[in-house]
């Protein structure tokens, strides 16, 4: 078994697609998955709502449940002002969810397992929240860095802490999603490779029998990844809603 190795991180390597064109425009399998996710979401909604039935079918009901879920999340967190941000929140949630779930398919790629992608999305949310804050609150936005009721003498200590706390938002937002997706895929890869290693190292009879256990574990991990994928999409989106809620309040 010493000769075998598990390349758990190799799955995250990027390769250009569409040949030279892909290389020149820096288009890898990650971008392809982003495009597929961006296409799947509206297409799935279109086919879900195509019949426009008053009494919905299961597919239509599932689409409406997704819509209502995100809507209640946005409006429940931000209030009536959340309605204007709802398309953004819905797009964000469905994009991350589709990305997480697409990554679970064989021969696919989880673009949310790349820190650059999650940082990009987190920075977009962060900058949007700052723009909305400045638009709604003006110069009062900076007053949030001094906690209400705190003695003014504590300002030199509290203001830098608050600024640091505020600036850490995109970092925590991006690393949370990235780390969860990486961990899940590494675990899946390891146990899948371990099965093969058992079969090749101990022979097909013994290794094949023992290989059943990592496979069972992988099935459980896959179920866990389904949960984690939805949960991380939800966490990313609900935190976005909370940041925007802070931004829209006066």
């Amino acid at each position: 078994m010493a000769g075998h190795s598990i390349d758990a991180l190799g799955q995250f390597e990027l390769h250009p697609i569409f040949g030279v064109l892909g290389e020149s425009i820096r288009f890898s399998q990650s971008e392809l998955m982003m495009v597929i996710a961006a296409v799947i979401v509206p297409v799935a909604i279109y086919f879900g709502m195509r019949r426009k039935a008053v009494v919905p079918s299961r597919y239509q009901a599932a689409t409406e449940i997704l819509y209502e879920f995100v809507y209640s999340m946005a409006v429940g967190t931000m209030g009536e002002k959340g309605k204007s941000f709802f398309p953004f929140i819905f797009a964000l949630f469905s994009f991350i969810l589709a990305g997480n779930y697409l990554g679970l398919l064989p021969f696919s790629f989880a673009f949310t397992s790349h820190i650059v992608v999650t940082v990009s999305l987190a920075l977009m949310v962060f900058i949007l929240a700052i723009i909305v804050s400045l638009k709604n609150q003006g110069i009062k936005f900076f007053a949030h860095f001094m906690p209400v009721g705190a003695p003014i003498l504590m300002a030199p200590l509290l203001v830098p802490i608050e600024i640091l706390s505020y600036l850490s938002r995109p970092i925590s937002l991006s690393i949370r999603l990235f780390a969860n997706m990486v961990a899940g895929h590494v675990m899946l890869e390891m146990f899948a490779a371990f099965t093969i290693m058992l079969a090749t190292g101990l022979g097909l009879a013994v290794g094949g029998f023992l290989g059943i256990f990592p496979i069972l574990l992988n099935i459980a991990l896959f179920a866990l990844e389904l949960l984690v994928g939805a949960l991380q999409a939800y966490v990313f989106t609900i935190l976005t809603c909370m940041y925007l809620q802070e931004a829209v309040q006066h």
Binding site: L92, S94, F111, V116
Partner: peptide
């Protein structure tokens, strides 16, 4: 460059998705 290229691609693709969704 493929890693850093994702930074802009995700924004472009997400923006397109946002427009279609909206």
């Amino acid at each position: 460059p493929l890693v850093m290229g994702q930074f802009f691609w995700v924004l472009i693709i997400f923006f397109c998705l946002f427009l279609v969704v909206k």
